[in-house]
């Protein structure tokens, strides 16, 4: 932790959203590329910024910090808001599986 602001914000990299999102999606969404509805930035979901201690998971754009995705589960209810994502792109491998083999380690800039 070299950046006190980041430490204070307890911001995570959105790889940490993979587990909760697996409740809803059958593909690993962290390898999907999300296009920010605010600034148009493309980035793998895993390279986004995750605020996990709010009442829901709040995933923000690594470029403009706009909200790209909100997700919460409470009891038997799952809620997903993709208002801030103009596009989600999931690339399948040649055998039809989700491209786990192409997965690169992504870090917020």
């Amino acid at each position: 932790m070299t950046d006190p602001d980041e430490a204070a914000d307890r911001r995570l990299d959105a790889n940490a959203a993979a587990g909760p999102l697996a409740e809803l999606f059958t593909v690993d969404l962290t390898v999907a590329v999300a296009t920010c509805a605010g600034c148009g930035n493309d980035a793998p979901l895993a390279a986004h910024l995750l605020y996990a201690d709010a009442p829901a998971l709040v995933v923000r754009c690594p470029n403009c910090a706009g909200v790209v995705l909100r997700y919460a589960s409470s009891g038997s209810t799952l809620r997903l808001d993709l208002t801030g994502a103009r596009l989600l792109t999931v690339t399948l491998a040649a055998d039809g599986s989700v491209g786990i083999s192409e997965r690169q380690p992504h870090r917020p800039p």
């Binding site: 602001d5 914000d9 307890r10 201690d53 709010a54 709040v58 923000r60």
Partner: peptide, 11 residues
């Protein structure tokens, strides 16, 4: 006094 933030802390 828990801190719950949905985004970066504005300065």
């Amino acid at each position: 006094f828990p801190v719950l933030s949905a985004g970066p802390t504005p300065r």
